[in-house]
Amino acid sequence: MESNIFRSSIGIVCAMMASGVLAPDAIGQTIPVKKGPVAQAQPVGDAIAGAKLYERKCTGCHSLDANSVGPSHRGVVGRRAGSVAGYSYSKPLGKSKLIWTEANLDLWLKSPPKLVPGTRMGLQLPDATERRNVIAFLSKNTAPKP
């Protein structure tokens, strides 16, 4: 009986999601570790393509292991925004309380000033596949440098 109720509840939630009654944001707010905007889950990207794109688009200001014009990126996925030691963040980003989930990174790379008005980062990746690939590359670089 409980099992049936449980299944029915899942069915209702899924139906509400499909109909747009429950927005992903609303669902995300029930998960305490996800702070700030939360986007829908995306397909997994291509980390190799992402590495090439990272080299081309991001390394003017960032690197994996050193703070530069922008903060270092190793371990960024899952990290709290504005938390890299030794890097001086803009006030809005420092106060944002965002966690760099893959979903939040997707929103960030789509338009940094839209997600965090007042940020210094301007580079946008309008192409969803490019964003997924860069995020896949960043996700591969979570371990501390040996």
Partner: peptide, 18 residues
């Protein structure tokens, strides 16, 4: 080369958000 290439790309990336 790395810095100049990065800067060229960074400037092009600034056009849309400005």
């Amino acid at each position: 080369l790395r810095l100049e290439t990065g800067a060229a790309n960074a400037y092009l990336g600034l056009i849309a958000p400005l």
